[in-house]
């Protein structure tokens, strides 16, 4: 999947439209895990919903292309797009409890996901497929007749993953899949996703704010702030040679067990609200390295070196 210059506006009452997403581009190769990182309200969810074309009624995609399997997803008709969702691009959500129907057996919900998309129709084959999926995510076959509330948090997330895999999708969008879980369960789920990636050749768009998880899971990282791409590079570059001040600050704010004596830093202030964006660089009000130009001019995404992009006036100057 390759995304170029995707922009999304939200139409507001009694105000000009808010530019929630501006010219975001990235490529997701086969078998790649791309980490989408940023604080809450930085546009992660908007990007995800734009890709799936599930924006709320006041959201409009204003420009860009989303190339996937040789076609532009933004040009597809509503029916063709509905066919695309889940069959080719599936999603895993944060709170698995909310995402599962509490009054339906887990096995039946997975079966429903399969039948709904005409992946398989014959009853016997569907049952076999459900068993296969549950086995894939490490849920014992005896538990398919249970209800979601009989599952623990980790099991529910596994069930969600099984549902996402129902139609053999090529891409999985994982929205904070481990945020509410304990570290040990988180480790189990991450290990599972990693195995599935290798076995099924899945591409994963991993949305999270946990930089530790990103370091362990992802191949490339896209850092977002205020709806703009701040930095986009391989995971090693992001952690060991970050160019954008926001990326650096974010890393300094994240606790690192291997250096427990250092003082933890914070980024004062909060992300801009979409209806009150600063005129220049969106990070300028919180940036420690800010100078005059930042307040008036928005920096463009600039290639630092091959495969490493950052949008900062300081980077351009070098």
């Amino acid at each position: 999947m390759s995304v170029t210059d995707l922009s999304t506006d939200f139409l507001l009452e009694s105000a000009p439209p808010a530019h929630a997403l501006v010219n975001v581009s990235f490529t997701l190769r086969e078998g790649e895990v791309l980490g989408l990182v940023g604080e809450s309200g930085c546009g992660k969810t908007t990007l995800m919903l734009s890709l799936m074309r599930l924006l709320p009624a006041n959201g409009r995609i204003t420009s860009g292309t989303v190339n996937f399997m040789g076609q532009d997803l933004l040009d597809l008709g509503e029916n063709a797009m509905a066919d695309m969702r889940w069959k080719h691009i599936a999603m895993i959500f944060q709170g698995a409890m909310n995402a599962l129907n509490p009054v339906q057996r887990v096995g039946d919900q997975i079966a429903e996901a399969i039948v709904q998309h005409n992946y398989i129709q014959e009853k016997g084959v569907v049952d076999g497929r459900v068993a296969e999926l549950l086995d894939l995510v490490g849920i014992g076959p005896e538990r398919r007749r249970q209800y979601p509330h009989q599952y623990s948090g980790g099991m529910r997330q596994r069930a969600m993953i099984a549902m996402a895999l129902a139609c053999n999708p090529q891409i999985i969008i994982a929205d904070e899949p481990t945020t509410a879980l304990d570290v040990m369960v988180q480790a189990q789920i991450l290990e599972l996703l990693d195995t599935l990636r290798q076995r099924l050749g899945l591409s994963i768009l991993f949305v999270t704010h946990d930089l530790g998880v990103v370091a362990e899971m992802c191949d490339t990282v896209l850092v977002m702030y205020g709806g703009v791409t701040v930095e986009y590079a391989s995971v090693d570059t992001i952690y060991n040679d970050p160019q954008h001040p926001y990326t650096r600050e974010l890393l300094r704010a994240f606790p690192d067990l291997s250096r427990p004596t250092e003082k933890l830093a914070s980024i004062p202030g909060h992300p801009p609200r979409l209806n009150a964006l600063p005129p220049g660089c969106r990070f300028a009000p919180r940036c420690p390295a800010v100078f005059d130009r930042c307040h008036t001019e928005q920096p463009a995404l600039h290639q630092v070196k091959l495969g490493h992009w950052a949008s900062c006036h300081l980077v351009e100057r070098m």
Partner: peptide, 13 residues
């Protein structure tokens, strides 16, 4: 914007 059960339902068509 919240991703809840409704979103899942829409997502799954």
């Amino acid at each position: 914007l919240s991703v809840g059960s409704k979103m899942v339902a829409r997502m799954m068509g």
